[in-house]
Amino acid sequence: MYTQGLDQKESAGKRPVDAVEAAEQLQAFQARIDAEEKIEAKDWMPEAYRRTLIRQISQHAHSEIIGMQPEGNWLTRAPSLKRKAILLAKVQDEAGHGLYLYSAAETLGVSRDQMVADLLSGKAKYSSIFNYPTVSWADIGAIGWLVDGAAIMNQIPLCRCSYGPYARAMVRVCKEESFHQRQGFDIMLELSRGSPRQKAMAQDALNRWWWPSLMMFGPNDSESKHSAQSMAWKIKRFSNDELRQKFVDVTVPQADFLGLRMPDEALRFDADAGHYRFGEIDWQELFDVIAGNGPCNKQRLEKRQQAHDDGAWVREAAQAYANKAAAAAA
């Protein structure tokens, strides 16, 4: 269960007093992980494990919340009522995913307000992909197909993550995510079977979203600083490069089906290995976006801050009503 309030003080009182005891505790913890036991909120865990999870889960939650913006951009301009209703449901799902994840992170002893403050101050990161603009309706198709497709690759192994509350939240997320990917592919399919101009729109969206989608998996394994420890703790099950390769292998045939071309001259099928080989990723672009210099970083945070500020009176009114009702009942 998600009652994080009480466990912090207790576990603080039970900190190991000497190095031998600490080493034994760490060893016992790793043994539980190795035995595929799930770690639950109130269980003893190394501080580094707790911090890693707080960082990862809160970043994941922030990504869902910020991720509503590029798609929300097209809610009022969706080409039909059907598409609008679908997109509304998808954007609402993203909010829901953010909430599942925030509550999973809260079990580790960080407050919701703290996480929100870290997002707004720019201290906490979110996925680089949401700093790209959605300039045409086809971008909504490309996001569902590619961005949600890449997210699924990342998230399915997280359903088996060693931390119980995170794993359970991911099971819920993954169930809903395949609707997101299919609605995106459906948009791409309709455009690519439409007029030449519609097909060109689909190709243009693919050209702009393909490489940023590959960057979503993070740096190459040789450059990834958190990977080894996260693997040992079974937070991560596959490396960045493994997941990226898997994504390319399943997505290229889908592009072929759509009659669209991947924007990669180096892309070819390696029949011996059974994999698609792809060109070099522009890592500088990823690092620039992460550093805050992507096309929409500033806009995304400003809009989140504005939504937070605009909602303040609602939060205050709800609190005032709750206080008044409690006073009347007393």
Partner: peptide, 13 residues
């Protein structure tokens, strides 16, 4: 069955 948690100002919310 436990599903997760949420924040709210009061029980109805």
């Amino acid at each position: 069955r436990h599903a997760g948690s949420i924040h709210a100002a009061d029980d109805q919310m």
